[in-house]
Amino acid sequence: MAVINGRKAAVIGCGFVGAASAFAIMESGLFSEMVLIDANKEKAEGEALDISHGLPFSKPMQIYAGDYQDIADAAVIIVTAGAGQKPGETRLDLVKKNVGIFKSIIPQIAEVNKDAIMLIVANPVDVLTYAAWKLSGYPENRVFGSGTTLDTARFKYLLGQHLSVDSRSVHAFIIGEHGDSEIAAWSSANVSGIPIHDFCEMRGHFEHEKAMKEIADNVKNSAYEIIEKKGATYYGIAMSVRRICEAIVRDEKTILPVSSIQHDNHGISDVALSMPAIVGKNGVEGTVPISLNENEEKALKLSADTLKSVISETML
């Protein structure tokens, strides 16, 4: 096995999400080398060239198209490869197609590199994170998914809009599946330490139940709306990928709602889903307790059961 180069990233899959993620990573200045891999080598070459031409405006970096041998020393391997979500299709509709693709891709990664952090971005991300863990033989702290990092950003953005406050001052999580059974964890949501309902009332909002339902539904349906309007979502997730890479490369120990293997977390085990987790140079260093009310607990268990049934159907 090659010695890991901490300044090298690999992006596998150069569709909309992979290409946008590669661009966001180039802009971040976190890495000095990035290899792009796609089943269509010319697509990867074109993306590498296009992004490289902007380097005079950014930081020095070597960006090129390659094959699996080229990822042997990569520190972070970002897997976006898979069939995209079509209009009207749920994320879980994709599962069988994409598990099949992973059965081809993941063993090829593990064959050349056992020491990287593998970040799964392809959908349905929770099932594919579980599949990647099983197929790769990686320790579970080093294979995890982007999970509800983007959903949580959407949640904060919409709450910021609703309350006319900077979304970075909003502390709230979407947990569970990245998809239709996701849970808005309202009971722990706050704005700079002020409970969410109290802050709403400070801003003249009193119809909490109505607003909660509307905002949570908007978060859940954001991707469907964007896909309907422009065919695919990629900028938001690319910025989420960049954020997760920052946490890893800088060993930030940032708390992010990534999709990781659960162990008796709120009674949930042996499934990958999103809970707040500490992310640093070793990947997921542990999950963080989150206070949930009875309805949220029930919804979280239901979300886990939904994912487990999909996993068992795909016979992983």
Results as ranks from 00 to 15, higher is better:
Val3Trp: 07
Asn5Gln: 11
Arg7Ser: 14
Lys8Ala: 01
Val11Met: 14
Ile12Tyr: 03
Gly13Val: 01
Ser21Gln: 07
Phe23Thr: 07
Phe23Asp: 04
Phe23Tyr: 15
Glu27Ala: 10
Ser28Arg: 02
Leu30Ile: 00
Ala39Ile: 08
Glu42Ile: 15
Glu42Arg: 08
Glu42Thr: 09
Ala48Ser: 10
Asp50His: 15
Ile51Pro: 14
His53Glu: 08
Leu55Gln: 11
Leu55Pro: 03
Phe57Pro: 01
Met61Ile: 02
Gln62Glu: 11
Asp67Val: 00
Tyr68Lys: 01
Ala75Met: 06
Ala75Thr: 14
Ile77Ser: 13
Val79Met: 03
Thr80Cys: 13
Thr80Arg: 01
Thr80Val: 02
Ala81Asp: 14
Gly82Asp: 05
Ala83His: 09
Ala83Gly: 08
Glu89Met: 04
Lys97Met: 08
Phe102Pro: 15
Lys103His: 08
Ser104Val: 00
Ile105Ser: 03
Ile105Tyr: 04
Pro107Tyr: 04
Pro107Trp: 05
Pro107Ile: 05
Glu111His: 11
Lys114Thr: 01
Lys114Trp: 06
Asp115Asn: 12
Asp126His: 10
Leu128Asn: 06
Leu128Met: 06
Thr129Cys: 08
Thr129Trp: 02
Ala131Lys: 01
Ala132Leu: 04
Gly137Ala: 10
Tyr138Asn: 05
Tyr138Phe: 12
Pro139Met: 10
Arg142Val: 15
Val143Gly: 15
Val143Thr: 03
Gly145Tyr: 01
Ser146Gly: 08
Thr149Ser: 05
Asp151Asn: 06
Thr152Asn: 00
Arg154Pro: 00
Arg154Tyr: 07
Phe155Met: 15
Phe155Lys: 10
Tyr157Ser: 10
Gly160His: 04
Ser167Val: 03
Ile175Pro: 02
His178Ile: 09
Gly179Asp: 11
Asp180Gln: 12
Ser181Cys: 03
Glu182Thr: 11
Ala184Asp: 11
Ala184Phe: 05
Ala184Gln: 08
Ala189Ile: 14
His197Gln: 14
Met202Phe: 09
Arg203Val: 00
His205Tyr: 12
Glu207Asn: 14
Asn218Pro: 00
Lys220His: 13
Tyr224Met: 09
Gly231Ala: 07
Ala232Gln: 13
Tyr234Gln: 07
Gly236Ile: 00
Gly236Leu: 12
Arg243Asp: 11
Cys245Phe: 06
Glu246Arg: 15
Ile248Met: 10
Val249Trp: 04
Arg250Met: 11
Thr254Lys: 06
Ile255Glu: 09
Leu256Cys: 11
Pro257Gly: 06
Ser260Asn: 04
Ile261Pro: 00
His263Lys: 15
Ile268Gly: 09
Val271Ser: 11
Ala277Glu: 04
Ile278Trp: 10
Val279Ile: 15
Val279Ala: 01
Asn282Pro: 00
Val284Ile: 10
Pro289Leu: 07
Ser291Gly: 07
Asn293Ile: 05
Asn295Gln: 12
Asn295Leu: 08
Asn295Tyr: 09
Glu296Gly: 10
Ser303Asp: 02
Ser303Trp: 05
Asp305Lys: 09
Leu307Lys: 00
Ser312Lys: 13
Ser312His: 12
Thr314Lys: 14
Leu316Asp: 01
